[in-house]
């Protein structure tokens, strides 16, 4: 998900030689808390309701605005934008393309969008976050391993014990995985109904050890009503070379891991490893 898909493009702006009072009027009229400041079509600052409170209404916007403005391109991902806004403690992010202001994203809009990619049941991110994270990791690492974990017999658990207990199994599974993954410097998401995915930049052997640990630990847990819970796991690992299309490589590797987990399930083998 990119910033261009959620940015506000119908922008209200102010010029640096208008007064703070005029900027206040604009903010009140349009019920907004910040205005990009444009001089000859170039972004030169941003004035917010906080600046307005701290400055005399007679002042020029140029003397009240924040001049150091963080901007991003429309092709930034929403997670990159969130990271930037948190790092710099900013509430609104102007979007620049070819030197021109083309949009604006507020923290509120961004968080509302990010919530769509968060699974409230398990407290995990959804698959979209994982795709972004893998792309992000590949900017700095040349190898990526995907561990695709598919709960065995989950449809029957739902049918036999009901969806409430089925949800409880998913929540407990997420807690177990989160605990293991956080200690292993890897990234976890809920990929689909009963599928979880871990991305890791560690060597393949380490990823295999991690998967084996997860497979071993699941039956040892105390599950509600003594339900038997286990995983079929597919692992796919790939080295990425400089000229390779990273985007397509990410989807290829997730897909390969998914197919490997299906193979593991149908062969009644708990782990299948594929090197691409």
């Amino acid at each position: 998900m990119l910033i261009k898909d959620i940015m506000e493009t119908n922008l209200i702006t102010v010029n640096p030689y208008q007064s703070v009072r005029q900027a206040t009027d604009l903010m009140q009229r349009y019920r907004i808390n910040g205005l990009p400041v444009l001089h000859k079509d170039n972004l030169v600052g941003i004035i917010t309701s906080r600046d307005i409170k701290e400055n005399h209404p007679n002042r020029l916007v140029a003397d009240a605005m924040s001049k150091k403005v963080k901007t991003v391109s429309p092709y930034y991902s929403i997670w990159q934008a969130k990271k930037l806004m948190e790092e710099h403690d900013i509430e609104r992010l102007p979007i620049i393309e070819n030197g021109r202001l083309v949009g604006l994203v507020t923290k509120g809009t961004l968080l509302a969008e990010l919530n769509k990619y968060f699974d409230p049941l398990t407290g995990l991110n959804r698959r979209e976050y994982l795709c972004y994270k893998v792309l992000d990791l590949l900017q700095e690492h040349s190898q990526i391993t995907i561990i695709f974990l598919d709960l065995n017999n989950f449809g029957n658990i739902d049918k036999q014990f009901g969806h409430v207990l089925g949800d409880e199994v998913l929540k407990q599974t997420a807690r177990i995985l989160k605990d293991i993954v956080e200690k292993n410097d890897s990234y976890l998401c809920r990929y689909g109904g009963d599928e979880f995915v871990i991305a890791s930049v560690k060597p393949l052997d380490d990823a295999v050890s991690l998967a084996q640990k997860i497979i071993a630990i699941m039956p040892e847990q105390k599950w509600p009503r003594g339900i038997k819970v286990s995983f079929s796991v597919g692992i796919a690992s790939k080295k990425i070379f400089n000229n390779q299309q990273i985007d397509s490589a990410v989807y290829d590797i997730i897909n390969a891991a998914s197919l490997a987990s299906t193979k593991a399930k149908s062969a009644l083998n708990s782990l299948v490893i594929v090197e691409l």
Binding site: N55, N58, R59
Partner: peptide, 12 residues
């Protein structure tokens, strides 16, 4: 810092 005119207004 909170005077009715700022440096840019003075420059003008």
């Amino acid at each position: 810092k909170k005077a009715p005119i700022g440096p840019e207004a003075v420059r003008q």
